[in-house]
Computed example of a mutant assay.
Amino acid sequence: MADTAAEPRSNGTSITFTGVTKTYGSNAVLHRIDLDVQQGEFIALLGPSGCGKTTLLRCLAGLETVTSGEITVNGADIARVPANKRDMGVVFQAYSLFPHMSVRQNVEFGLRMRKVAGPQRTARVEESLELVGLAHLGDRYAHTLSGGQQQRVALARALVTRPRALLLDEPLSALDAKVRVRLRDEIKAIQTELGITTIFVTHDQEEALAVADRVAVMKDGVIEQLGAPEELYRRPATSFVAQFIGESNRVPGTLLGDRVNIFDTQLPVIGAVGLREGSAVHAFVRPEQFLLSRLIDQARPEDRDARPGAGTRAVVVSSGFLGAQRRTVVRLQNGELLAVQHSASECFSVDELVGLRLAGDPVAVERA
């Protein structure tokens, strides 16, 4: 007779962190984390090494005990529930597969521990292997598989028990670039198909932006900003998020109320709290927010101070082809280098004088 853990579960699991802190002696790793994960949502915890993202995941899995605060799953406090009773499917960076077992036996292991009946166990194993595209490799030993295939086995093993939530801790970082991209897309497709609540820990911003419904950017044990990928990229709440998400040029400017003046162009400001009118600031401008134009007059910026309307002049240092786009690096009169991203159909030569303008999108700023 199978126990209740073997029965199908609803994937509508909500998870709430309320004032969660974690300390090791005098070292505080998490500082009053508040986070609501909605039913069926895919949340990425993103940040540099040591920011606390893995610790937060381990607290949810029951592998760490919170120092203070509360974690609830579907409204129930799980603080005193042991890890093996929390019903979380966990996939780590290390595959941790049993080398003496076949792929099928590895996936089946959790169901055997739950005493799921044989026919049901067999059906669920085959279903999970089919889900991750490994139905044809069930009899192979895990150590004979490629890294990407082994990680699929680990994913199937986590899903076969029909957990309330799927927790992924840097699951792709040991794989090469092409396999990593392919597998991350497959994970997202599987998560969407199952509708399972998922928390994904990564330090790779591209990975987080590609798969998550919302991303929590962490730094020094706190969540700097939580939002949809596009929101984080286009409207970063802090200078850290502006620098960590995507690529930004750090450009000097002057604060004018709720706008900043850069190259005689006034742009809307994000995150200017506490800065006074007229303050010198640094603005974080994305490469695609710059617009380049070819000038007929090729006099150097130091020779003439004429400007092509609002904007300034710069000299092309390099230009590289990126497929649909081109990345051009230019040097300003003061020697600063700026990266500009534009259509690959626009080609600029090294040492060419160009006009440099701003598109007008909002920018994050910090005190200079």
Results as ranks from 00 to 15, higher is better:
126 E>N: 15
160 V>H: 04
271 G>T: 10
140 R>V: 04
311 G>Y: 01
190 I>H: 03
102 S>R: 06
353 L>F: 06
251 V>N: 07
47 G>H: 03
362 P>K: 02
174 A>F: 10
240 F>T: 11
120 Q>I: 13
219 K>V: 07
14 S>K: 02
258 D>S: 14
170 E>S: 02
249 N>F: 11
287 P>Y: 03
328 T>D: 05
110 G>W: 07
198 T>C: 10
337 L>A: 13
343 S>N: 07
69 G>T: 13
283 A>S: 11
362 P>S: 03
278 G>C: 04
95 Y>C: 03
62 G>W: 05
65 T>Q: 15
332 L>V: 04
245 I>E: 00
264 D>K: 12
330 V>Q: 07
344 A>V: 15
201 V>T: 04
127 E>G: 01
367 R>G: 14
210 A>K: 07
367 R>A: 15
271 G>S: 13
144 T>D: 14
72 T>E: 09
169 D>Y: 00
273 V>F: 12
277 E>R: 06
32 R>W: 03
70 E>Q: 15
109 F>D: 02
181 V>E: 13
318 S>P: 03
236 P>K: 04
98 F>D: 11
366 E>P: 03
156 A>P: 12
172 L>I: 15
368 A>S: 06
251 V>C: 05
80 R>P: 06
75 G>Q: 12
200 F>T: 00
71 I>V: 12
217 V>M: 03
162 R>A: 10
125 V>D: 00
288 E>A: 12
122 T>Q: 13
296 I>G: 15
80 R>V: 11
360 G>R: 11
65 T>Y: 08
11 N>E: 03
177 A>I: 08
324 A>I: 02
303 D>K: 13
268 P>L: 01
212 A>N: 09
161 T>D: 07
59 C>F: 01
249 N>R: 08
47 G>Q: 00
103 V>N: 10
93 Q>A: 08
14 S>C: 06
20 V>G: 02
322 L>W: 05
41 E>S: 09
